[in-house]
Amino acid sequence: MTASTSAATELRAEQDRGRKVAQNREKWAQGRTYISAVVILFWCLAPAYWMVVTAFRDVGYTYDTSILPTHVTLDNFKTAFDTSFGNHFGQALLNSLFIGTVVTLVSLVIGVFAAYALARLNFKFKYLVLGFILGASMFPGVALITPLFQLFTNIGWMGTYQALIIPNISFVLPLTVYTMTSFFREMPWELEESARVDGCTQGQAFRKVIMPLAAPAIFTTAILAFISSWNEFLIASQLSSDATQPVTVAIASFAGAQPNQIPYTAIMAAGTIVTIPLVILVLVFQRKIVAGLTAGAVK
């Protein structure tokens, strides 16, 4: 009797110990996860934070290293928009907005049909078309720039908006098509089916049933398209003029009062202006954006 009780107690003690070890291990694993999370947060956010802090720092304290904002001023933002040193940042913002909007709209309007066909219809050469569109999105910009440079020089388009918009479409359109294709494949197409049973043609079913449902997907695709156009630098750096240059070019060539001194604080202010709207947009639509970004890679 006593022997069996003691055996039972021992067993219970053993189990308790086992549970404690497991709990400790769990806690330790959880702790490590948190440490890793903090490292990731620091690695991703610290440089961006440094840009914002510097943007608000007096130019005389450019290289100040205190973590918190010191010598706070808004002068850098004024300098960023100042045109007296040959910078055109304000104009560049408008240019980027204009180019990005046109490129996004054109790509969406053209791409939505292709995405529908690829996601929804059965036809020959589907994979060839898909391969062609994917190949196009992987295309090196430099392979386009040389002939376009010569062509636009010959027809007098250098420095015009259309010279910047047309090449942008070459990489935004494929991105638009394959992001939307992935989104479209996820949609409740039974509804289209019911609409057709109710007597709609395929076109009507698309317009009246599918389009409203597809709106969020199209909106997300629009954000991704706009961002990639907004970030474009290579083509714009070669084909734009002072009057039509987008913000990326304006920031890259930002000049200060002294030719040999890089006006870091003003550049950081300009960078902050360019970045903050994007970051807000991306954070607000985070889930959708991530879904759109990764749509191509997994399914």
Partner: peptide
């Protein structure tokens, strides 16, 4: 947070790291 570096244009990233 991981979306922040991704959202910053490369031209800005380059200037930021230059600094």
């Amino acid at each position: 947070a991981v979306l922040v570096p991704w959202a910053i244009p490369t031209a800005v990233t380059a200037k930021l790291w230059l600094f």
